[in-house]
Design a protein around this nucleic acid. Structure first.
Length: 275
DNA sequence: ACCCTCACCTGCACGC
DNA sequence: TGCGTGCAGGTGAGGG
């Protein structure tokens, strides 16, 4: 589910609950949550460890530990990180439980079972993220970077924007929103987008991501909300094209279209995004 | 090195 | 009400 803004908000919200806390016990209920470890080995490595910091890289959440490791979490489509008071029952689809020294539990739940957790040595982190494109809000993600990256791609613009080795943080929603803001057709070959349009797209990507984070942050994101509704709820009503098939474009009034692309839905305005 | 399809799961909204 | 179908905000493995 979550794209960069949601992951960023989750990381920010988690910070106040888990930084400085230590884990007295870790339990993994679904072994396949760990692609490269066993529940026993994982639990052993987590026991008695303290959380130093919570960060984000792309759509990964990085929980830095004081034993030289970091816990990497990817929420994929339906993963949730929650903080439970001692007496609260476990939500459905709980796959990992970290008992904390304040009596609360830090939980990973995931309806669709796509999520992933792994422990990575601090000095291996860079290697772990080697294939990821630069962070959108870093200087490395420049209009020039985007221009050369798109120029080298054989695929359509939308497909290229979803490739985390080319651009990090966009998913199906924000890719559509960014292309709409930049007034570019999702089906055009990435290499054929003109330099002027790439500059527009570069601004649009930063704008939709920042805007969504800003709206989400006014929401008072709260991982103790078990219903998980803390993801980007306030921004949802602000989507310009995503999920609006058949509704009118806010700019020109044309009807928003949905079309399949690489097995997924792409929403766009046929008039504003002609080419 | 690239590109495409499929697989990983559950739940929900829809039409019959 | 029940059943089948298609869809859901992501990505990696494995094929060509």
């Amino acid at each position: 589910m979550p794209e960069l803004p949601e992951v960023e908000l989750v990381a920010q919200a988690l910070r106040e609950f888990i930084v400085g806390r230590s884990w007295t016990c870790a339990t993994i209920l679904r072994p396949r949550l760990l692609p490269d470890s066993t529940p026993e080995r994982f639990a052993e490595r987590c026991r008695g460890v303290s959380v130093v910091d919570v960060r984000r890289r792309g759509k990964y959440i990085i929980i830095e530990l004081d034993n030289g490791f970091a816990l990497l979490v990817h929420l994929r489509m339906s993963g949730r990180l929650l903080i439970l008071p001692p007496d609260r029952p476990l939500p459905k689809f709980t796959h990992a439980i970290f008992e904390m020294d304040d009596g609360r539990r830090f939980i990973f739940s995931d309806q669709r079972h796509f999520g992933m957790m792994k422990l990575v040595a601090a000095d291996q982190l860079a290697q772990e993220f080697q294939k990821l494109a630069p962070e959108p809000f870093s200087e490395d993600f420049s209009a020039e970077y985007l221009r050369t990256t798109l120029a080298r791609s054989q695929r359509t613009l939308k497909e290229t924007l979803l490739d985390q080795s080319k651009v990090v943080g966009l998913g199906n929603i924000y890719a559509a929103e960014a292309m709409f803001l930049a007034r570019i057709n999702p089906f055009i070959k990435a290499a054929r987008v003109s330099p002027r349009r790439v500059s527009r797209l570069h601004c649009a990507i930063l704008e939709v991501l920042a805007e969504s984070i800003a709206y989400g942050s006014t929401l008072n994101v709260d991982p103790t909300n078990i219903d998980g509704s803390y993801y980007g709820g306030a921004y949802e009503g602000r989507w310009r094209v995503y999920g609006r098939e058949g509704e009118r474009c806010f700019v020109c009034g044309a009807l928003i279209k949905r079309a399949a692309q690489a097995g997924r839905s792409t929403y766009f305005c046929p008039r504003c995004q002609k080419r």
